[in-house]
Write a protein that binds this DNA or RNA. Structure first.
Lengths: 179, 179
DNA sequence: GCTATGCATTCATGTAGATTAACAAATTGA
DNA sequence: TCAATTTGTTAATCTACATGAATGCATAGC
């Protein structure tokens, strides 16, 4: 929970807030002046395309940061929605607290490491989306996030994987029959 | 070119090397103790899947860093190949130079910004792969990287987009006829 | 300069996964 | 507690894109 300690020391305005399941914390089109740190519970970020279809970009459980980094970096309105999949305790803090000049070297280093790991996860995600079949992506997902299938509806896992709920159901059916 | 200056002051072993087009700088399976900064020319990183098919992860032209961040972060053998698409001048430096304790705050901050932008680019890439058709991804690519079509063979653009060269050719044929 | 290899295009066919729909089971809410 | 909604499953059809193959051009190597 080092990240949490840092945030609290960095941004005196950061506050822990309790949100109910279903609460929308950020909507596409809004400005993106805050980020979220999950103390307890489960959040997700997602887009809605022109056809009204949801595409889940990431899940964030205990200990994770979640934010629309693309929009923050390019100073544009949010592209992602962020909402609660469970009742959650969330630290809401100003994204700029990571850019204040008087961060300690230690804090910046730890931050660098967090960002690098996020890049690593995204690198894998891109390569999987480009080269692996839906079944392979699902199997990899189960290994990477073994607790999520118990916590989120299957259709959201499908959305994260980039397939329809029907396709994922079929994959699971085939796998179950193989045993 | 601030990045270059930083690298040279940080890693006294960093050296500029000239490579010929086609030169492979890193192979999958090798250890990943170095990163590459492109002073001039064009590099790319890519995987080769079980069927022997290439999937281009990124292009790096003048001013870009390229490395297998996933493998570096998780201390695993490289998953990506890196090679030269043009005769190139490249600064080869130890990745650990970014982790040395005595970086200045300013250097770390600039590094943080570089990493954030990379995340931003990857976020967009993931969302595109999940929600956009091949044609839409191609049109977006032309906007984001207008110079690349003149510098790399079309089949590599197809590989970056996650489609076959034939599919991209068909898309271009349709677009040309529409005009 | 000529051959060989690689590249882009086009077409015929195959297929993973989307779409649509119908139904059963689980969850939610008054 | 019971109706209403959401979720997961299965199946029939459709479609974007893959695969494989043939052809014409460009490029590179000898």
């Amino acid at each position: 929970m080092d990240t949490l300690k840092e945030i609290l020391t960095l941004d005196s305005n950061a506050k822990t807030v309790h949100f109910k399941k279903g609460k929308i914390l950020q909507s596409a089109g809004a400005n993106t002046d805050v980020s979220f740190f999950v103390k307890e519970g489960l959040l997700r970020s997602y887009t809605i395309d022109e056809k009204g279809k949801e595409h889940i970009f990431m899940f964030a459980s205990k200990g994770w940061l979640i934010a629309d980094i693309e929009s923050q970096e390019f100073h544009q309105p949010a592209e992602l929605f962020i909402d609660c999949l469970e009742d959650s305790e969330v630290v809401v803090f100003d994204k700029r607290c990571f850019k204040i000049a008087n961060l300690t070297t230690d804090q910046l280093q730890r931050n660098t490491h967090l960002l690098s790991r996020r890049i690593a996860v995204l690198q894998r995600r891109v390569l999987m989306l480009m080269s692996a079949s839906a079944r392979e992506r699902y199997e990899q997902f189960l290994i990477s996030y073994p607790d999520l299938p118990n916590r989120v509806p299957q259709r959201m896992i499908a959305s994260y994987l980039g397939v329809t709920p029907q396709a994922l159901s079929t994959i699971r059916g085939i796998q179950a029959r193989k045993k």
